[in-house]
Design a protein around this nucleic acid. Sequence first.
DNA 1: TCGAAATGTCTATTGATATAGACAACCATA
DNA 2: TATGGTTGTCTATATCAATAGACATTTCGA
Lengths: 245, 245
Amino acid sequence: MAGMKQVQRQTGVALWRQIADRIREAISSGAYDETGMVPPETVLALQFGVNRHTVRSALAALAQEGIVRAVQGRGTLIERKERLNFPISRRTRFTDGLGDQARETHSLLLGHAEEAANAEVARWLRIEPGTPVIRLETVRDADRRPVARGTSWFPAARFPGLVETYRQTESVTKTFAALGLSDYVRATTEITAAHADSGDLADLELTPGAVLLITKAMNTDLDGVPVQYSISRFAADRVQFTIEN
Amino acid sequence: MAGMKQVQRQTGVALWRQIADRIREAISSGAYDETGMVPPETVLALQFGVNRHTVRSALAALAQEGIVRAVQGRGTLIERKERLNFPISRRTRFTDGLGDQARETHSLLLGHAEEAANAEVARWLRIEPGTPVIRLETVRDADRRPVARGTSWFPAARFPGLVETYRQTESVTKTFAALGLSDYVRATTEITAAHADSGDLADLELTPGAVLLITKAMNTDLDGVPVQYSISRFAADRVQFTIEN
DNA sequence: TCGAAATGTCTATTGATATAGACAACCATA
DNA sequence: TATGGTTGTCTATATCAATAGACATTTCGA
């Protein structure tokens, strides 16, 4: 069964990085749950058909991410393996959706602006291009680990003081409530995937080549009037989405 | 504005591949729609802060994928930029969902087997582990381009002759209809993202490091009894999902 | 306490990646 | 048809990625 877990050569992605990605995936899928450890370097080298030093480079990268910890004489221990689940439904809310999956969640406001809606934002919010909108740039953490970074736009006229309220509540739901919108629903969600860009790498503490799940979502009030359009970029190795119909 | 589009060095992902991924993304987002061409190599080299030869490696990779075509003396033309949209709803069907986005769709049956349900399949189909199930391995094309590869499981007792029917109809919906199940609904969809593995690279004609959207989906009959569980792996640069609530 | 098994460190060599510069070939158009 | 702008090709060099082998160090159990 040697060489079963194949890697590709000469493709612009270093073998050690491909192997790191495979092991990370294997860890989060529970493949090593019995021992709580990654197989020995020599075994992995045999499985992937590469030199032991190449495996060591991969494990060093995972150690850097805090996923594993090597102990001389014992082996390489798994430190962390969770993947958060986000339900997507008419009632989708970021923090509530996490439920008891995280003990602690935070939303850090990176920046904000009041600006004129561009064509895309105007289309989603169903307003005229050029209408004033408020833009928020946020990073969301769960248990001190960044999970997603996002940009949200809101019609400016409807939500005066939104920025300050959001900064205090760290919650869109609470901000809406404080500004007189007691309930809202998720109308549309688009999901794509892509590689992380340099901004993602910094904000989400990722390594290049990392995979993102990207959502474009629109929320409306109970009359169907759009109140929020947001683009969120999730670290794909930390989350999954669930849709119940 | 030089060096605006940043790339990361010494991270196991070659610069030319990072740049290829960025340009691919820029193309599909319509950034170069005005000219129908990629900017000149010297301009890209300046933007990314790399040598022109490095940009050429990236463009060569995109040409290999059929996304661009370089013409000496003129520039590098964009050949293809589409991204298919898959609506996910209670009525989700693969081929119908594509609507008029593709002129021609195919489903190639790679393999099939009758086997005992493992723990995961049993849980999703709500049957006892060990119950006989039929497994289908398929690759789906749209306009001659592979879009997704998938594995589906069906309760064997309920659908005798399923394999032969599917091979003829190339459609789950038509197969169900032929076997007496006139209608069904999508109950649950889980979405994750990951890097392509070696099987994906071959079946979907991808290059290593490519990004996949992965769905685990369960369909039921109108009484809520599971009739199909499937894991599908979509080439992320060719598709997006839309959820309407 | 010895030995097996595991990670840590070092040297050396080869091939892929990236930079640098120069010039050829080709296209559109003024 | 001359020119500027573009892609194509070649040489040379430095650095990173990967292989190979040897041996040290640590842990754990027989």
